[in-house]
Amino acid sequence: MSFLNSMNISASALTAQRQRLDIISENVANIDTTRTEAGGPYRRKMVVFEDKAGDVSFKDSLNQAILEKDEDGKMIRRDYSPGVRVSGIIEDQSDFKTEYNPEHPDADANGYVRLPNVNMLEETIDSMAATRSYQANVTVLNAVKMMAQKALEIGK
């Protein structure tokens, strides 16, 4: 695997984790939002990741990573862009929390208010995981950069 492929993989992961952190921030910001444009309470959003290559088997991935010979005997490499991307942002369909507060403007006839299905503990754990993943990919980028610098020094 070339240095640039390694950097592209880490860069795609950094972009995906940044978007994950943006969605987590949106969830936390709307933890008390009882009325949205759609009419109900805010629904927690989650990021879905997928392999950039799409529906490629392990065998195909391995073959794409190895140089092959074409009909003329020349070494070729298939076009393959490894990494991760955000395939979508989905809403958590779990039930809303309810709270008895008859004075709230969004309370129903029985005095209950439907609150968003955002759990601060889950959001904190998700943000910690995303931050750790982001840090790990920054470490990978720095290691690849150092290896490239050392390789250039050997050529002096």
Rank of each mutant, 00 (worst) to 15 (best):
M1A: 10
S2M: 01
S2G: 11
L4K: 06
N5Q: 13
N5R: 09
S12D: 12
T15S: 15
A16P: 02
Q19Y: 08
L21V: 03
D22L: 08
D22E: 15
D22H: 11
D22F: 03
I23A: 09
I23G: 01
I24L: 04
E26D: 14
V28I: 15
A29F: 06
N30R: 09
N30T: 04
I31P: 00
D32Y: 10
T33W: 01
T34C: 06
T34Y: 04
R35P: 00
T36M: 06
T36D: 05
E37R: 01
A38R: 09
G39E: 09
G39T: 09
G40Y: 05
R44F: 08
M46V: 15
V47A: 07
V48M: 14
F49V: 12
F49Y: 13
D51E: 13
K52N: 15
G54D: 13
G54E: 09
V56I: 14
F58G: 06
F58T: 07
S61Y: 03
A65N: 09
A65R: 12
A65P: 00
I66A: 05
I66K: 11
I66L: 13
K69N: 11
E71W: 05
D72F: 11
D72A: 15
G73H: 05
K74S: 13
M75S: 12
R77V: 12
R77P: 04
R77Y: 08
Y80D: 13
P82M: 08
G83F: 01
R85V: 08
I89Q: 04
E91P: 02
D92L: 07
D92T: 08
S94Q: 08
K97P: 05
T98C: 14
T98Q: 15
N101L: 07
N101F: 07
E103D: 15
D106K: 09
A107I: 05
D108N: 14
G111N: 02
Y112I: 11
V113T: 06
P116M: 13
N117A: 11
L121F: 07
L121S: 10
E122S: 14
E123Y: 03
E123F: 00
D126F: 05
S127L: 01
A130I: 08
Q135N: 14
A136E: 02
A136K: 05
A136P: 00
A136T: 11
N137E: 08
T139Y: 05
N142P: 01
N142W: 02
V144F: 07
M147A: 11
A148K: 03
Q149L: 07
K150Y: 12
A151C: 03
I154C: 06
G155M: 07
G155P: 00
K156E: 15
